[in-house]
Design a binder for these strands. Structure first.
Length: 491
RNA sequence: GGCGGCAUAGCCAAGUGGUAAGGCAGAGGUCUGCAAAACCUUUAUCCCCCAGUUCGAAUCUGGGUGCCGCCUCCA
């Protein structure tokens, strides 16, 4: 439980990780706005925090991981209008697809997953308190945060308010429609009035909707408390989203919102950010239809979370081949029943409170120095600001050991170590021989029927009957059709 | 315009003062009925360019070039 260093966006340096309460970690990640399918960029963010969360638990921390779902905002309303749906129908639909994506990626569910619409009253209260404290003001049914009243505004982005005001692009400086409402152009909305016919809630300032930034501040406060250990999200959230969260929460509470700010970099396509607006995105579903979850994970985690990832077919294929190698090595652990192929079960063990850091082979005198060195390498890499590319390098070296050792019992142990450490990164390394999708299954049946046809053509009825009988044992009934290909069905 | 980041082999990508991890691809070999897998060997005299600091720099400093991000919704 020691030695972890985390790069903190606030200080722009790696800091020793010291949670507020020893042994406990409260972490929050900004989740999706559910108005469309999630793409690989969202997957990267989710996998980054999934791995952080897994590693913290693996290291023995008692982690409470919260990730919100933004289920009300202008994008949702607009999209719903386009599709002629009610906003909550739309947000529910894409909440489900998001969950499905996460599940398929083996991204563990957060401990708590609040939705914005569940916290409207708390947000209203939050805004009221900011007004009372003189950090916010009402303006024609809107409520704005008074940015100049919060002296350290800009500390996350590392730009002073003056810099921000002077540096702002013209279009921002002269937002005509808001000029009369805001005292300072940098002020941001805590509450926006809305036409009575639109989605909204009653508030002391009339009908309206909460500002986006308020949601996270409010949910953090109500779910986790006034100060949490880790807060994070994609690097595009640094400004203004997280900067504004800090302003709101710290103005109200007078204490830090989060001790460590973690931001992941983007997925790029041809050196440009993958995004909805550029139209260069790959949905998670599309990617998963071509590659396994392990491959996607390996692809994402082979780059450090703070560096941009270049998405491309060639590197996806490379990840696929790499995954296959790890998988072949790990298979040895599966085939040995006593080592337990229940990877998930193993993970459950260290989900338990106070579980010490597992070092499966460190104290095993038979295992030799090599693997215990690799385990140390893995942990050292992960402790160094979650350096997953280096950690993965250790996994590949464990695979090397599995293949190169002459001692079969030892190889099984190495394979088990590989599987355990892979699972810390959320890699399942499930033997592909054990998961055959229905499409492949159907084609296998067709292939067997081809062989049976050949046998029948050769009047080798013993062979053809054997194929039919074996299929029947598997619940596949073959029915010959005169002059045509045999039909088959599952019983 | 303000602020920030990045530049390492064919591709992806670690390393941030001590002489270039790892993956993929490529080449040669072993094994093999064939193939795959596996194994062995091999693939950057050098880390965008220039200057400087240092016994020593891909790593630090200054300058330059190129690319990207945030400042509007964005993971």
């Amino acid at each position: 439980m020691t030695g972890l260093k985390i790069f903190n966006t606030v200080s722009a340096t790696k800091e020793d990780f010291q949670p507020l309460s020893p042994g406990r970690v409260l972490m929050y990640a900004c989740g999706p706005t559910v108005y469309d399918l999630s793409h690989l960029g969202h997957a990267r963010m989710a996998l980054t925090f999934d791995v952080i969360q897994r590693y913290l638990r693996f290291s023995g921390y008692d982690v409470t991981f919260v990730r919100n779902i933004t289920d009300i905002d202008d994008k949702i309303i607009n999209r719903a209008r386009e599709l002629n749906l009610r906003p909550e129908q739309l947000s529910r639909r894409f909440t489900y697809t998001f969950w499905k994506d996460m599940d398929e990626l083996n991204s563990a569910s957060p401990d708590i997953e609040p939705r914005a619409t569940e916290y409207i009253q708390q947000m209203i209260k939050f805004a009221e308190e900011l007004i009372h404290k003189g950090h916010a003001y009402e303006s024609k049914g809107d409520v704005y945060f008074d940015v100049p009243s919060f002296k350290s505004y800009g500390k996350l982005k590392k730009q002073s308010l003056d810099d921000l005001l002077q540096g702002a692009r013209d279009q921002v400086r002269s937002q005509n429609e808001l000029k009369d409402l805001k005292k300072t152009p940098a002020d941001f909305a805590l509450w926006k009035s809305a036409p009575k016919g639109e989605v909204g809630w009653d508030s002391p300032w009339g009908w309206g909707r909460p500002g986006w930034h308020l949601e996270c501040s409010s949910m953090i406060k109500n779910v986790l408390g006034e100060t949490i250990d880790i807060h994070g999200g994609g690097e595009d959230l640094v400004f203004p989203h997280h900067e504004n969260e800090i302003a709101q929460s710290e103005a109200l509470h007078g204490k830090p919102l989060a001790r460590y700010w973690i931001h992941n970099s983007f997925v790029q396509v041809e050196s440009e950010k993958m995004s909805k607006s550029l139209g260069n995105f790959q949905t998670i579903q599309t990617v998963l239809s071509n590659y396994s979850a392990d491959t996607v994970r390996l692809f994402v985690l082979q780059t450090h979370y703070r560096s941009p990832i270049e998405f491309g077919t060639e590197s996806m294929e490379a990840a696929k081949s790499g995954t296959a190698r790890l998988l072949r090595a790990a298979r040895l652990a599966d085939s040995n029943a006593h080592m337990s192929d229940d990877n998930n079960g193993k993970f459950q063990k260290y989900l338990q409170k106070d579980h010490p850091c597992i070092q499966t082979l460190k104290n095993d005198p038979d295992a030799g120095a090599a693997v215990s060195r690799l385990e140390a390498d893995f942990l050292e890499a992960m402790n160094n600001d979650f350096n997953t590319p280096q950690a993965i390098s250790a996994l590949f070296q464990m695979a090397d050991l599995v293949f190169s050792t002459k001692d079969e019992k030892l190889a099984v142990k190495y394979a088990a170590a590989l599987k355990t450490y892979a699972s810390v990164l959320g890699l399942r390394l499930t033997d592909t021989g054990k998961i055959i999708d229905t499409n492949t299954g159907a084609r296998l049946v067709e292939t067997l029927l081809d062989l049976r046809d050949q046998a029948r053509a050769n009047k080798d009825y013993k062979q053809s009957d054997q194929i039919r009988d074996e299929l029947l044992k598997l619940g596949i009934k073959v029915m010959d059709v005169k002059g045509a290909r045999a039909q088959w069905e599952r019983e």
